[in-house]
């Protein structure tokens, strides 16, 4: 979708999200967990940007910070022409209808004491003034849209299966006609058989309502299926961002290469010939990232410079970005 020439719907620049660490008797501020450390990306209208990475790399934080569920440490976020990064939480409420989120845990993200109608209808009460009938009609409409029986409206979340709960979560997110939805691992808590259904539903809804997704997942094959472009995160930073096919076919960054080599290959012939890159060691702590490139401690191709200089994100080809010293030298040579 790199050809989408229109202005991006969401544009994030230099986003930092640090969580302070307090310790000691007086709970002094002794350091930060750098969950998201200076990332920039753009999401274009109607596209799905996949965000992948190992657990703990900060991808969920990016999603939440983008929607300003956190007060961010630094950077700017522009959604649909509005810079939301500095607006305080109370004023931000006005913009909430435009941007919504679907959560990973469909059980925990639904208030157990509210029935489906209240869960789906609450944003309507909060942001629109509908009559009771209109409200009910809208709830039914949303339940229809996500493929749930209208009679479920009076039931409580615990009475549903995981897939059904996630549909409720989706209906809730759709209630206010958002433009942009952050899907934070929406399927990882579901049975494999249900995952496809939900992903297909998301795709259908995207077509129907012209939605823009930030699709966060650690499941590369699912991202391959749904995303138009993919960003790969490692330890709070984006290491590579490229259109889907290019990324999956010819990953540039050593980390992306390692990640993709772990994806099971349906073709046994190819599976056998493939080089399986095994990363050694643990992911460093985000409170104390290594000097230089964040990946240098585990990178099979690390060179001297990687240990003391942080690589810049560069556009290797139009629409393909990566942050790696090896690629820098490659482009220079080219």
């Amino acid at each position: 979708m790199s050809e989408t020439s229109a202005a991006p719907l969401v544009s994030i620049e230099g986003l930092k999200m640090y969580f302070p660490i307090h310790a000691g008797l007086f709970r002094r501020h002794v350091g930060d967990i750098k969950a998201v450390d200076d990332i920039s990306l753009e999401i274009f209208e109607g596209e799905t940007l996949g965000l992948v990475g190992e657990s703990g790399c900060g991808k969920s934080t990016v999603g939440r910070a983008t929607l300003r569920l956190y007060d961010i440490t630094a950077g700017s976020i522009t959604i649909d022409g509005t810079n939301t990064s500095k607006i305080n939480q109370a004023d931000l409420r006005r913009f909430r209808p435009r941007m919504q989120m679907i959560f990973q845990d469909p059980q925990g993200s639904l208030n157990p004491r509210m029935n489906v109608a209240d869960i789906v209808g609450e944003p309507l009460d909060e942001h629109m003034s509908l009559s009771r009938d209109e409200r009910l009609a809208r709830i039914h409409e949303l339940l229809d849209a996500v493929g749930l029986n209208r009679s479920f409206a009076n039931r409580y979340p615990h009475e549903f299966s995981g897939g059904q709960r996630q549909r409720i979560g989706i209906a809730r997110a759709l209630a206010l006609n958002p433009k942009f939805i952050v899907c934070d691992e929406p399927i990882s808590a579901l049975d494999v058989s249900i995952q496809a259904q939900v992903v297909n539903l998301l795709e259908d809804l995207q077509k129907k309502f012209g939605l823009t997704y930030l699709f966060i997942s650690h499941d590369l094959s699912m991202v391959h299926h749904i995303a138009d472009r993919v960003a790969v995160m490692y330890l709070g930073k984006i290491v590579e961002l490229a259109p889907r096919d290019q990324l999956f076919n010819s990953p540039l960054h050593p980390y992306t290469q390692a990640l993709l080599s772990a994806v099971p290959e349906p073709n046994p012939a190819r599976q056998n010939t493939r080089v399986h890159i095994v990363l050694k060691g643990d992911v460093p702590s985000p409170s104390d990232p290594p000097a230089g490139c964040n990946f240098c401690t585990r990178c099979p191709k690390a060179i001297d410079i990687c240990h003391h200089l942080e690589p810049q994100t560069i556009e290797i080809e139009p629409g393909r970005f990566a942050a790696c010293h090896l690629l820098e030298s490659a482009t220079k040579v080219a």
């Binding site: 569920l69 006005r94 209808p97 959560f103 993200s109 208030n111 609450e122 944003p123 979560g169």
Partner: peptide
């Protein structure tokens, strides 16, 4: 999570 959900709803 549902508290985060509520905040995301713009409550």
């Amino acid at each position: 999570d549902y508290v985060r959900t509520a905040r995301a709803k713009g409550i």
